[in-house]
């Protein structure tokens, strides 16, 4: 499959401070990619590199098969970027900004844009600076969708949106992805947004990718069991490479395992476990396990600090 975005060995620093280090990243065409990381982990830098706005210190970036250079205006016809919470086009009314966009984009779909504005309840007569920040983000998104991009980069798109609008916005995004096979990258620090939507995820931590995989594959790969087993654990289980994490809570032991669930459960039963039951694990917990596996210190494992 062709790659929508592909980066090889990309490094970027600002005033001597490294923002991204040795990034190898590829986003397959047509997927919804969840890019996870806290503020300052390098998400925004990564997306702005993919847009050709920032230039890498080292490495090569190509978008839809086109290698990026210095002036990447053409690439931004087909790659759109929407970020929440920053001033934009304050000197324009909504309809004036729409007019500008209609001149700007080769594949502009005016009637779609009008429909989106109606659905999002944005008044075209209003000044953009008078819109709430949530509406400003929605407007950016409407413009981005109407420009018919082939890649859509979203930087915390649901920040500042109430639950109703948030759902609506996510539905627009999914509808677009399904209709045009648009590749979507969603950068966020709230995993809930992408748990349902993403099919591929990557975690950025301090300017590095520590994990990239398809979501189904992770789920099939990582499991957590709640077991009641006489202590201490039998030798073979203590040194089993499939066991990633063990937590004791009174009589109950929580074990996180890698690989298939059944053989592992059977092994515990054979070792004399009274109770063996699988426990639900959300992505947040799965990623925490991966961080620990990567050898990051415990202090760094607080998800908020990721």
């Amino acid at each position: 499959m062709t790659q929508a975005i592909s980066m090889r060995g990309v490094t970027k620093s600002f005033r001597g401070q490294q923002a991204l280090v040795g990034i190898d990243w590829s986003v397959p065409t047509g997927c919804i990619y969840g890019l996870i990381g806290a503020n300052g982990s390098g998400k925004t830098t990564l997306l702005r590199l993919a847009l050709g706005l920032l230039w890498p210190d080292q490495g090569e970036i190509s978008v839809l098969g086109q290698t990026l250079g210095n002036e990447n205006a053409e690439v931004r016809q087909i790659v759109q970027y929407v970020a929440s919470g920053r001033p934009f086009a304050v000197g324009f009314r909504v309809k004036e900004w729409i007019r500008y966009a209609s001149l700007l984009y080769a594949e502009w779909d005016g009637s779609l844009c009008n429909k989106l504005l109606v659905a999002l309840e944005i008044n075209p007569q209003q000044h953009i600076s008078d819109l709430s920040s949530g509406l400003q983000t929605s407007l950016q998104l409407a413009v981005a969708i109407a420009a018919h991009p082939r890649v859509l980069l979203l930087d915390e798109p649901t920040n500042g949106l109430d639950v109703v609008v948030k759902r609506q916005v996510l539905q627009f995004i999914i509808d677009m992805a399904a209709k045009w096979d648009t590749t979507i990258v969603m950068a966020t620090h709230t995993i809930e947004d992408i748990e349902r939507m993403a099919d591929t995820v990557g975690i950025l931590y301090r300017g590095r990718f520590i994990f990239q995989s398809e979501l189904d594959a992770i789920k099939a790969h990582i499991h957590r069991l709640r077991v009641v087993i006489p202590q201490p654990l039998p030798q073979f289980l203590q040194h089993d490479p499939r066991i990633l994490q063990v937590h004791h809570q009174g009589h109950i032991t929580q074990v996180t395992v890698e690989g298939r669930l059944e053989p592992m459960a059977a092994a515990f039963r054979d070792a004399g476990a009274v109770l063996v039951e699988p426990v639900d694990m959300d992505l947040t917990e799965i990623f925490r396990v991966f961080l620990e596996k990567e050898g990051y210190s415990r202090e760094a494992l607080r998800w908020d600090a990721l």
Partner: peptide, 12 residues
């Protein structure tokens, strides 16, 4: 496409 949009699920 309809089901994915309705349930906010990944279309793939």
């Amino acid at each position: 496409r309809e089901l994915a949009t309705l349930m906010t699920l990944n279309h793939n």
